[in-house]
């Protein structure tokens, strides 16, 4: 054995990009190994879509007060177009529940401790989750939008608007996934991780997602109009229906930027804190 075996080498370089790709591969593989989770996550918004279109759609659509109000079949088709953006947002919040769960799962298993003692870019563990969840969300969104189209969703967006929709969804997902990565680390167990995001799933209901906000009592309406999901849903709705988007887009993007930045910093701090005992 050589006495130089442990001689300090030139300080080894970190490879954050390469390590992130490795972690992404790990997360995608885990998703494939555990498909029931993805199915559950995608299933939820699909169930809500069918429920709201076929059970509540006729009546709610009639109450929208559009030109075809009165007839329940027309009401239903009008309501599909109205509710689809909310269901799309709900798809994102559903998938990121899975993000929080898998982050929490990682932390309860020893593998993260191993990563912490290895010479790798620390943030890669988190960016691996973020990238994996974004891919998972993209697939989920394709499925949910496909089902929406099957049940009568008729967007009027042209190619440019669709491009804007995709871009906006990517930004929104990015922000919310980072929030989930932070919340997944806060939760003490895998079980609590699945609950900690429940408010996010319910938030579209307290906004313009399912019914217009002017039908709500004053206090609730005030909340509904100012909560972040309302401008996001309105932006999606306007883009998909080929309407002028106006200020909502900027407000929504500002919310996304704030959520992304705040969550990223929070998640990073949580990850760098010393593991408990």
């Amino acid at each position: 054995m050589s006495t130089h075996a442990l001689a300090p080498a030139a300080r080894p370089r970190l490879h954050p990009f390469r390590d992130s790709v490795t972690m992404l591969r790990r997360n995608l593989r885990r998703m494939l190994r555990y498909p029931s989770m993805t199915l559950t996550l995608v299933g939820m918004p699909v169930v809500f879509l069918l429920l709201f279109v076929y059970v509540f759609g006729g009546t709610l659509g009639a109450g929208l007060g559009g030109p075809t109000a009165g007839d329940s079949a027309d009401g239903r088709s009008a309501y599909v177009d109205y509710v689809a953006p909310a269901i799309i947002l709900m798809t994102v919040t559903s998938v990121i529940q899975g993000t929080a769960i898998s982050v929490a799962m990682d932390l309860t298993e020893g593998i993260i401790a191993r990563f912490r003692t290895m010479h790798i870019a620390r943030a890669a563990v988190l960016t691996g989750h973020v990238l994996g969840s974004m891919i998972q969300t993209a697939i989920a969104l394709a499925v949910v939008i496909g089902v929406a189209l099957l049940v009568g969703f008729r967007p009027e967006a042209g190619p440019v608007e669709w491009l804007a929709v995709v871009g906006f969804l990517a930004v929104m997902t990015f922000a919310l996934v980072w929030l989930a990565v932070a919340l997944g680390q806060v939760s003490k167990s895998v079980e609590s991780a699945s609950n900690v995001l429940l408010p996010l799933v319910l938030l579209p209901f307290l906004g313009s997602g399912f019914v217009p906000t002017d039908s709500m009592p004053t206090g609730l309406r005030w909340f509904a109009e100012y909560q972040p999901f309302t401008p996001m849903i309105e932006t999606l709705r306007d883009l998909l229906m080929d309407q002028p988007v106006g200020d909502n887009a900027w407000i929504a993007l500002a919310w996304c930027a704030a959520i992304a930045l705040g969550s990223y910093l929070w998640a990073r701090r949580l990850f760098n804190r010393e593991p408990a005992n």
Partner: peptide
């Protein structure tokens, strides 16, 4: 220089640090 230390060591902790969903080879 924790990074330089990390580059030189291998650690097997008390609680197994394997990814349960991946195979041994993976």
């Amino acid at each position: 220089e924790p990074d330089a230390v990390r580059a030189a060591i291998g650690v097997t902790g008390q609680f197994s640090a394997v990814d349960n969903l991946l195979t041994g080879e993976e």
